[in-house]
Amino acid sequence: MKSDLELYDYWPYADRPKIVWPNGAKIAFWVAPNIEFYEANPPINPKRSPWARPHPDVVPLATRDHGNRVGHWRMMEVMDKYKVRGSISLSVGLIEHHPEIIKECVDRNWEFFSHGIYNTRYSYEMDEAQERAIIEDSINTVQKATGQRIVGYLAPALTHTERTMDLLAEYGFLYTCDLFQDDQPQPIKVKSGRLISMPYSLEINDIIVYNSYLATPRRYGQMIKDQFDQLRTEGEKSGTVMCIPLHAYAVGQAHRMAPFEEALEYITSQPDVWVTTAREIAEYYYENYYDVMQADILKRKAG
């Protein structure tokens, strides 16, 4: 084990070159529905057990299924209402299990990126060939089903290896959602090619807010609005990125929908916001800012 994978350089928040998003926007806003499949009886990874109870662990398994059967529609309809396209963190195996969901997202021109094959299969202990296999499976399966070449990644259940970022860059991915060090994208240090970290935020992720912070639905709605206000203000100095990572099995419970809808209504009615997808943010960043930021990082590092 290493004390630091040295994936990026320390880069103070103050006095960075200014980012201005399209149409002068100060904040780029994207929503990431995690559309996940959890296996009822998965093989066990030596580093992490997928379920707390013996299989089938009915309560959490059924709750996650509720997200796909019921919650997804609720979330999607509300996003439609406020014209927010999703950037989907996809358990790629779900393409075979639940193609109806995939079709609805394709019809809406939502973006897909990979969240592994299943959220019950972890990257820990994978050798390089195995990790390549899940990346290639992701690229090929999504391409075949949707016509999209995926360019983003969020490791399955956030399980990584030391080589994950290098492999993503080698396979031509534009961004990773796995790193939470900043509210702006940042060039990542990879062996070959280029990769940026895309702000995704675990702190406003519905699962973390509901299951770790144990927030009420109304508090979650308020947190989303407060985060937006803060990042838009800071975006006057240099454009920021805000993502709301969602899971239909959490936010799509009926008692949680109204505060989420209110938060989306608030954000999409504000000035200076670019409502977009992760891919569009990444492409704009590469075109306009990657080199500038890389130079600034190196300049500051040199002192």
């Binding site: 093989p43 075979e96 299990h97 094959i117 299943y118 299969r121 202990e125 994978m126 050798d127 195995q130």
Partner: peptide, 16 residues
């Protein structure tokens, strides 16, 4: 570091 090959096999990857 390697996982058994079954860890990357998905016999129940199917509709439903």
């Amino acid at each position: 570091m390697t996982l058994p090959k079954e860890y990357l096999e998905y016999p129940l990857r199917r509709y439903g």
